[in-house]
């Protein structure tokens, strides 16, 4: 299971791929050159409505999961979503976290190696235990 070509072209997994080398200046994963801007001025008009082409960028997050024992979650989970998704979750049980990780693998095809799952679940359970009940 790999990252889609479009995802690669858009630089989405750059964060994932670069994690091992996330020393400052990991510039090898800079965004591919933007498409030619020639089309961006185009508009379409009809019935008094004019639509303007849009060309923009979305902000990204370089936030990593903090603490020791975060390697597995940092290496496996940040391609599809930023860390904030997990860090805003409520206190959940081990069974709930296990189910979440399995859902990501089975339904959403997250390329998480089975051998990394226990470390990811342990980290998530540890995260929960630091929160107020």
């Amino acid at each position: 299971m790999g990252l889609s070509t479009k995802a690669v072209a858009r630089g989405v997994p750059a964060l994932l791929l670069a994690l091992a080398a996330l020393a400052p200046g990991a510039a090898a994963f800079a965004q591919p050159a933007a498409a030619p801007a020639a089309s961006t001025a185009s508009t379409v008009t009809g019935g008094g409505v004019t639509l303007h082409s849009v060309s923009t960028n979305f902000p990204d997050s370089d936030r990593l999961f903090p603490g020791p024992a975060a390697d597995a979650i940092n290496n496996n989970c940040l391609a599809c979503h930023s860390a904030g998704m997990v860090l805003t979750q409520p206190r959940l049980s081990r069974a709930d976290w296990q189910a979440e990780v399995e859902k990501m693998r089975s339904f959403y095809k997250a390329p998480v190696d089975a051998t990394d799952v226990p470390a990811i679940v342990d980290y998530l359970v540890g995260l929960s235990s630091t929160k107020q009940p």
Binding site: S4, V12, A35, S42, T43, L51, H52
Partner: peptide
């Protein structure tokens, strides 16, 4: 996360 950042209306 793969969302186009550009849409050419033409």
């Amino acid at each position: 996360a793969v969302i186009p950042t550009e849409v050419d209306v033409a």
